[in-house]
Deep mutational scan, measured.
Amino acid sequence: MAEQVALSRTQVCGILREELFQGDAFHQSDTHIFIIMGASGDLAKKKIYPTIWWLFRDGLLPENTFIVGYARSRLTVADIRKQSEPFFKATPEEKLKLEDFFARNSYVAGQYDDAASYQRLNSHMNALHLGSQANRLFYLALPPTVYEAVTKNIHESCMSQIGWNRIIVEKPFGRDLQSSDRLSNHISSLFREDQIYRIDHYLGKEMVQNLMVLRFANRIFGPIWNRDNIACVILTFKEPFGTEGRGGYFDEFGIIRDVMQNHLLQMLCLVAMEKPASTNSDDVRDEKVKVLKCISEVQANNVVLGQYVGNPDGEGEATKGYLDDPTVPRGSTTATFAAVVLYVENERWDGVPFILRCGKALNERKAEVRLQFHDVAGDIFHQQCKRNELVIRVQPNEAVYTKMMTKKPGMFFNPEESELDLTYGNRYKNVKLPDAYERLILDVFCGSQMHFVRSDELREAWRIFTPLLHQIELEKPKPIPYIYGSRGPTEADELMKRVGFQYEGTYKWVNP
């Protein structure tokens, strides 16, 4: 592979701008107003304001973009700056750019259920340069409990009458099928589907988006991507930290609602779906819905739930269990780990287990898709061969690698495990991989909904998990304890083995 010439960040961002501006969906010269509902909250200060700053800094926003914060707290732009700027990672050389960014910011205080507050917000936006005809993007960085009041008031008082209007809704989209349907029906009564952007930030990850290209742009994968060759698929999300004093919020939802029903299920769809007619948003989402419709409700015998306990040999936070978090209700049975087996009941995947695993306070930070292939028929190497695996590593250190057998150097035919490896950090030294939120917010500006969740996708996802969630809430089974920093409950490994996964433990990928 030829040595790549190092590029400056300015040059890299210039390439990104060229890609972005050559499309006809990006209205570079139009006025846009980006409204952050819930501007005083954690999500706004840690993710949304920093993301908008990065896009502005790199010249990736339309030229005439204004940012308006809205929340109940009586704040000023200076207050917003004070709480969000520490997350910007701005350099001293960017000081003038930073001043320009905050000059485009404003803030309006108001209630979430008060019509007069929204009329005041609308008047404020109209007073901005060309504000009355601007395109408006409303980001709901809010708890779902206020979605209905907020969307109703936005629709009645704050819509642009000339430009387009788009609304970005953060997960969780309800707690179960019934609450999700209620919320979807409410929002759909106010906005068209092409105006609604239900954001799952995992769909903005580079390697998640790469799944489609790997599958449908490489001839070698087509013939082997089926039940005849693939023994099982494992989708993993692991965090090495616990709730760390923020367990009160987590306890309301648990690990299945927080990660599995959305992030992991979306990745499953991209692995299992048929080739779409095109890369058009609805063509892709149509195929994802077909996959979900082929999955039956989760069966309790295919589920393992766990909850982390303190590690007596650990240090600091590792010595504390979930129930030691003062914000967690006493005696909570909320799971911090889950392993679930699903089956896609169609011709391509009949009988292939899709194993979804996620948890907190585990032994490493990792998100990946792992396809394990069947054993080689007619073994001539005296059971020395391990199964081939194709691994798409989402985070950290984005990579695609194939675990395969090669001859060990020497005189004899002794096979050993090795890999074919594409590590993004080595291959793409001159490429700026956008943060997931950067990519998705740019998608909203461009009107691309491919990486957002459609209402029928959402409904099918909740259909699969709601009976299990209701059973857990009714019966309150005690989750299996696992030690902070471990791989999780051993019962999860036993479940995976029972459905056909072979864990060798003899080879570990190392970032080159």
Rank of each mutant, 00 (worst) to 15 (best):
A6V: 14
Q11E: 08
V12E: 09
C13W: 07
L16C: 05
L16Q: 09
L16P: 14
L20Q: 06
D24Q: 03
I36A: 06
I36D: 01
G38Q: 01
S40K: 01
G41E: 01
A44C: 07
K45A: 05
T51I: 09
T51K: 07
I52N: 02
F56E: 02
L61E: 00
P62K: 08
N64H: 10
N64K: 13
S73W: 02
L75C: 15
A78S: 11
D79K: 09
R81D: 06
Q83H: 11
F88C: 14
F88W: 04
K89G: 12
T91C: 14
L96E: 07
A103M: 12
A109Y: 15
A109F: 08
D113F: 14
D114K: 12
D114L: 11
Y118L: 09
Y118H: 09
H124N: 15
H124K: 10
M125W: 04
M125Y: 06
N126H: 14
L130T: 12
S132W: 13
Q133K: 07
R136N: 15
L137F: 12
F138L: 06
F138Q: 01
F138H: 07
P143C: 04
V146H: 07
A149D: 09
V150R: 01
V150C: 13
N153S: 12
N153K: 13
I154W: 03
C158Q: 10
Q161F: 12
Q161Y: 12
G163Q: 12
R166W: 00
I168Q: 04
V169Q: 03
V169T: 07
V169H: 06
K171S: 02
P172S: 04
F173P: 03
G174N: 10
D181H: 09
L183V: 08
S184Y: 10
N185T: 11
L190Y: 06
Q195F: 04
I196S: 04
L203T: 05
L203K: 03
A217H: 05
A217G: 15
N218R: 01
N218V: 01
N218K: 02
R219G: 07
I224P: 05
W225Q: 04
R227E: 07
D228H: 09
N229A: 04
L235C: 09
T236M: 07
T236R: 03
T236V: 07
K238L: 01
F241M: 06
F253R: 00
F253S: 07
I255K: 03
R257F: 00
